[in-house]
Amino acid sequence: MALVTPQARAWRTRRTPGPANPRPVDARPANARLATALTGAGVALVPWMLVLAKTVPQTAEVSNWATAWIGLDLMLAAGLTGTGMLLRKGDPRVSPVAAATAALLVTDAWFDVTTSAGTGGQGMALLLAAGAELPLAVVCAVVAARRRG
């Protein structure tokens, strides 16, 4: 957990057995299982990507296209605003908010550039990605990394 201090984590795993505490608490086996499950999920995506590469059409007409993009921009606005407000307060919760915002910014840049390929809007998408979205993502990632608890 990002909000648990290293001292608290160390205390949790170093407690000695006694009458009030029959066994020391050790979160490592649960973390190992979770790590295995997450790694397995990532590896399982590789064959799925191959299926998608063969079966997804190159073009498609999309319903609610504006709603999807407005929703992403709404999440970006909330993430950037939240990151700024939490950073100003020195709130440790800024780290996960900044990390999520960085991921959203990279995602936005990726989809802007890839969905505009071969259109008149590709230049603007590249400009926004290089000049705004990716630099902001780096700033948010640095905030997230520096503010870890």
Rank of each mutant, 00 (worst) to 15 (best):
84 G>F: 06
65 W>E: 05
56 V>L: 15
121 G>L: 06
19 P>L: 15
73 D>I: 00
90 G>V: 01
27 A>Y: 01
129 A>K: 00
148 R>Y: 09
78 A>P: 01
107 T>Q: 12
46 V>C: 10
73 D>M: 03
48 W>I: 14
103 A>H: 14
47 P>K: 06
85 M>Q: 12
106 V>M: 06
132 A>I: 04
91 D>P: 04
121 G>C: 09
48 W>E: 11
17 P>T: 00
107 T>P: 02
49 M>I: 02
73 D>N: 04
78 A>Q: 07
116 S>I: 00
32 A>M: 11
49 M>Q: 14
106 V>D: 08
107 T>R: 08
127 L>R: 08
60 A>E: 15
52 L>C: 08
135 P>M: 07
79 G>I: 00
104 L>F: 08
88 R>H: 12
119 T>Y: 04
73 D>G: 01
139 V>T: 05
145 A>T: 13
37 A>I: 12
19 P>H: 15
76 L>G: 04
96 P>T: 15
38 L>Y: 08
57 P>N: 13
104 L>H: 03
137 A>D: 10
114 T>M: 12
40 G>M: 03
89 K>M: 14
81 T>C: 11
40 G>N: 07
47 P>R: 07
40 G>S: 09
115 T>N: 10
91 D>I: 01
68 A>L: 09
140 C>A: 14
18 G>F: 07
27 A>Q: 01
124 M>Q: 12
39 T>K: 15
31 N>P: 00
76 L>S: 05
20 A>F: 15
122 Q>C: 03
75 M>Y: 05
18 G>R: 14
134 L>H: 01
92 P>A: 04
79 G>A: 08
105 L>N: 01
45 L>W: 12
60 A>I: 07
135 P>E: 05
45 L>C: 08
69 W>K: 01
122 Q>R: 01
124 M>K: 05
133 E>I: 03
132 A>G: 08
110 W>F: 11
54 K>Y: 12
146 R>N: 11
17 P>Q: 03
137 A>M: 07
50 L>C: 13
117 A>V: 14
111 F>R: 00
75 M>G: 03
39 T>W: 04
96 P>V: 15
45 L>G: 05
73 D>C: 03
93 R>Q: 14
145 A>V: 10
82 G>F: 04
109 A>C: 03
22 P>V: 02
22 P>G: 06
102 A>W: 09
78 A>V: 04
40 G>C: 06
56 V>R: 07
63 S>F: 02
55 T>F: 08
134 L>F: 01
115 T>W: 10
70 I>Q: 13
85 M>G: 02
72 L>N: 13
91 D>Q: 06
